[in-house]
Design a protein around this nucleic acid. Structure first.
Lengths: 340, 340
DNA sequence: ATATTGCGCTAAAACGATATAGCAAAAAAA
DNA sequence: TTTTTTTGCTATATCGTTTTAGCGCAATAT
């Protein structure tokens, strides 16, 4: 640990001590010895001195000179959602391994906040973005893509925008969850979703519908919508209404809905799975702690974040403008809430 | 949104267009007009042009020149712990309002990882740190403080190190939780804690003990330790053993222990609060979803993070070397798990 | 002997902002 | 009138890197 007060060691210091120019020093330390035909001995010498002096390059100078920052901006809806917390966590690891750092911020599902965040990150000089869009942000994302800032859409991409994206195969996951309920003997299966147009939600809804249709249950399709600004109450209302209609199982479209649903069910004292079969989405401590553990679709957090970071870094380093669209399969975790 | 390809507007561009020098431009845009006796008209003129050209200062250049980065490094144990997720979230907001950005990383409670993180953040040029230390990191934190890098310890400070810190008043909180159980009619109250020496844990233990003593229950003091690397199993074992001993209530020392405890209790089919009264720590979705909602000590997340950021920024900007030690009170949330 | 090539290195110009020293003209004081 | 002060501005060095252009010398080719 060096004292903050004693000035930091610079390239110049090393150069002086080694009796060479700063250029040579820079080349040597960046592994460009051969490329610039520096004698191996000189390179070794320089590296040794750098080590001795505990040289740490000044990143601001590097950034200024190179016009790059080595920082990836990540914009997610909410870091206090465990799913995104894990995603960010994982992205950090992957990015670090590739020599990048992650700046992140939460949009709270507000288009304006997303825009502010992105702009402030641009000012901070991030090299590229991984963004989970929110409602009403399509235009802005579009502009962003058009302005040639490297960007990977995540989790709920606008698929008609020409950009790379990484997302769960939501259709398949929802199909899987619904089919599982059907195979477990339920037939009047409802879905609780958000009334939003983002792709992940629409595809989960479509996946549910498709599964119902494919099993001859088209007429039983029944979707209720929870309001995110009054989540618990609205979810409770939806569930009560569905129960009245004779629904015998529910598929929750997200982990927030799942938690709210579990809460409502415990309040309404509905017996799981006898009176109502359940499948949720993503994970949460709460899923296992409710009296009957919840079956759910598990998203492959590491795979998703790794892919997103890799694609972005590839764009940054290879100037690879090829668009990559990746959909990764989810896994169904079967617990007691869905086995009759 | 500016096109990434079209080069960015620099001070020079503005200066040229305004027909003045870059120095003047810099002063004008930094509000140092008066200080450098620039005519008000010129200042207005320059500012107008900067606006027209949508000028955004290059942060790398600023950093290089000033030796500061406007970035605060935050090191916490684990971002996927909801408590720390909320903390980070809140710190970001506060920091943004003060003109700073937050870089954060998770130590996973490993001293080595904490050290690596801090060093990498130093290389990235952060101006100061907010750190939640972990076991075996005392020496390193001590070095850090000695090397004059501005730092605020957080959540579990080493209090004998001469540095500022912000933490919950853990003693008081534990005392409160324990007293509450006693007043609710429980008397054989056990505590489940981690066997670590960090201050927050020691003080929670001391607070529990003090409450028991003050209520004449010294002989009933009983502390069981959960292992963090095998949390669920070890917690279950501890609880089972305590139950055998005739314990009638439990105080969980952290939210991770609380979740594990709830899990064990639901597995062991113990009736809450009839057979066992419960109070936990921090919040979690799970606390409300278990069949009987858990009473718990709620930490004032906003206050804690705000204070920490403010103290650090004060150190950075005022060169204020005065050490500030802040302890903030927690709040007891009473739910069904502790009312006989 | 002269021209060419390769080798190992250096000098110096960027990158964009800030801050110090100082200059010319106008205003005030002598 | 001459000197001093004030006003409004400029030129330039600097922060620590990276990178381009090119220099002098020796070895090889002609």
């Amino acid at each position: 640990m060096t004292d903050r007060k004693t000035k930091k060691v610079s390239l110049k210091d090393i150069a002086r001590q080694a009796g060479v120019s700063t250029s040579l020093t820079s080349f040597a330390l960046n592994g460009k010895g051969k490329e610039h035909r520096i004698s191996e001995e000189t390179v070794r010498h320089i590296i040794q001195i750098a080590k001795d002096l505990n040289y740490k390059p000044n990143i601001a100078a590097k950034n200024l000179r190179s016009g790059k920052s080595g920082v990836i901006g990540v914009v997610i809806p909410d870091i206090s959602n465990i799913f995104f917390a894990q995603i960010v966590r994982s992205m950090e690891d992957v990015a670090a391994r590739l020599g990048y750092t992650v700046f992140f911020g939460s949009s709270d599902e507000y288009a304006q906040k997303l825009q502010d965040l992105v702009e402030s990150l641009i000012n901070r000089g991030v090299d590229g973005f991984i963004i989970a869009p929110c409602e009403r942000s399509e235009k802005f994302i579009h502009q962003l893509v058009n302005s040639n800032i490297p960007i990977v859409q995540f989790d709920r991409p606008y698929k008609n925008i020409e950009s790379s994206y990484v997302t769960l195969n939501n259709h398949k996951a929802a199909y899987l969850a619904t089919s599982h309920l059907i195979e477990a003997g339920f037939c009047r299966i409802g879905m609780v979703a958000y009334d939003i147009s983002l792709s992940h939600m629409q595809e989960r809804i479509e996946g549910y519908k498709a599964a119902m249709e494919d099993h001859g249950l088209k007429s039983e399709i029944c979707i209720g919508f929870a309001k995110s600004d009054n989540l618990r109450k609205s979810t409770a209302k939806v569930i009560a209404k569905m129960k009245e209609k004779g629904i015998d199982a529910l598929f929750f479209a997200t982990n927030t809905i799942s938690v709210a649903g579990l809460y409502a069910i415990s309040e309404q004292k509905i017996a799981i799975p006898r009176e109502l079969g359940l499948v949720g989405f993503d994970g949460s401590d709460a899923f296992e702690l409710c009296s009957i553990p919840l079956s759910y679709i598990k998203q492959p957090v590491e795979k998703l974040s790794k892919k997103a970071v890799e694609i972005l870094v590839n764009m940054l380093e290879e100037e690879n403008r090829a668009i990559q669209c990746v959909q990764i399969d989810g896994e169904l975790i079967v617990n007691a809430s869905s086995s009759c």
